[in-house]
Every structure is written in structure tokens, then in C-alpha cells.
């Protein structure tokens, strides 16, 4: 004996779909806002870099004193990287927006590094760049990632540029070719132009850094 009208099941279904849909919508909307935030940070960094590049082009030579007053290179790249990593964990490595953000981020890092190299030719920036190449499926890369995050926090003179080896980006492919980075050697580090591969311990990695970088540690623990 059926006492409940089919209308009830349909209404229940509609309400469930509405609740479910709202939850999905809110979740996706907030994710979208976060992505927009990342995008806007990337845009700001791009403007900063472009501005500095233009400054170089216009003046052909900038005095080191002038540079001291300029917000030299973006220090936000590091925190942007952390946020990008969080987004990648939540949305997945293959998410189209994540891939696009990572490509833009990699390009910004390459440009930032080029600019840093250019500035360093003229002035003492006090910054040591590390180009770090990794893949998501490499166990040592995970550990190297943790070590570099800690080193970046402890050593203000260190700037870490991390690149996903598998990213399909021509500029990155060129960078990989220039430094002769091989997939089987990952993780690979280019420290001040010197290439080294593999990761064992944090101490061992620290020893690969120039002494003046490690001398300015702000280690909290």
C-alpha cells in the first residue's frame, strides 16, 4: 500500500539537489575567489618584474644605490608558491586552472631569476638563487621540497625557484636544456650556477650552499 504521493519524492529530490547544488556552488565559488586571488598576485608580480625590466631598459644602467630603494624583485614569489601548492593539493595536479597558474608562476620565476642575475652583475644583491627541479612522483623531491621550504624561511639570502619538470612550458624546457637537467637525476639543484643532483639530508643540502648565505640564518627552532 502506497501512502506517499510521488510528489513527495520529487520535492525531496529537488530540495536535496538544491542543498547539494548550493554547497557545491559555494565551495566552487570560494575556490574561484582563491584562484582569482592567486591570479591577481601573479599579475602584480608580473607588473613588478616588467617595471624593473623597463627601468633597466630606460636607464641602461641603474645605480646600486637606486636599486636599494626599489622593491627589488618580488619577495612574494615564495608565499605565492606555497599558496599554489595548497591549491594544487586541493584541486589536483591535473586541474586545468592549476596547470595554467603553475605555468604562469614558472614563467615569473624564470623572469625573476633572469632579472636577479642581471642585477647581480652590477650590484651585490646578497641573494643566492637556487633553481630546483622536481616531479610530483619523485620521493626524494618531496623531502627536498620540505628542506628547501625550511631553508627559505631560515635563510633570507636564499631565493628558491622551483620548477615542475613535467610542466609543458617552452621557456621551462629551454631552462632545463640549458642546465642539462635529466628526469632520472631529480631532484636537481642549480645553486649559483652550479648543478648538483639528489637529496640525502637537510645538512648535506645546506653544505652545498655558499657560506655567506648560511651565516645569516634566522632559524626559529
Amino acid at each position: 500500500m502506497n501512502r506517499t504521493s510521488p510528489r513527495t519524492y520529487v520535492i525531496a529530490l529537488l530540495i536535496t539537489v538544491a542543498i547539494f547544488g548550493t554547497a557545491l556552488f559555494v565551495g566552487n565559488k570560494i575556490s574561484g575567489i582563491r584562484i582569482s586571488q592567486l591570479q591577481s598576485i601573479q599579475d602584480q608580480i608580473a607588473i613588478d618584474i616588467l617595471s624593473l625590466e623597463t627601468q633597466f631598459e630606460l636607464l641602461s644602467q641603474v645605480s646600486c644605490e637606486d636599486l636599494a630603494d626599489t622593491p627589488l624583485l618580488s619577495r612574494e614569489l615564495g608565499s605565492l608558491g606555497d599558496r599554489l601548492q595548497t591549491t594544487e593539493l586541493r584541486l589536483g595536479t591535473n586541474d586545468a586552472e592549476v596547470v595554467q597558474l603553475k605555468e604562469q608562476y614558472s614563467l615569473l620565476q624564470i623572469k625573476d631569476n633572469l632579472l636577479l642575475t642581471r642585477v647581480a652583475e652590477q650590484c651585490d644583491t646578497g641573494i643566492t638563487p637556487i633553481l630546483y627541479f622536481y616531479t610530483n612522483d619523485c620521493e626524494d623531491c618531496t623531502r627536498a621540497g620540505y628542506a628547501l621550504t625550511k631553508l627559505r624561511k631560515d635563510l633570507p639570502g636564499l631565493r628558491v625557484y622551483s620548477f615542475d619538470y613535467d610542466l609543458d612550458l617552452p621557456a621551462l624546457k629551454t631552462l632545463i636544456a640549458i642546465h642539462d637537467v635529466l628526469r632520472e637525476d631529480l631532484p636537481t639543484f642549480i645553486i649559483d650556477g652550479e648543478s648538483s643532483t639528489g637529496f640525502t639530508t637537510l645538512d648535506e643540502l645546506t653544505q652545498r650552499l655558499p657560506e655567506f648565505v648560511t651565516a645569516t640564518s634566522t632559524e626559529e627552532i
Binding site: 554547497a23 559555494v26 565551495g27 570560494i30 586571488q37 599558496r83 586541493r90
Partner: peptide, 17 residues
Amino acid sequence: IDWFTFTPSSIVYVTLS
């Protein structure tokens, strides 16, 4: 703390419902 990392996903809102 970076509040960016605390971005509840849709499943959290469904659970809340």
C-alpha cells in the same frame, strides 16, 4: 598563519548542511 590555506571545499559545506 596564511588564511588562504583554510579554504573549505564543497564537501565541507555538504557536511555542514
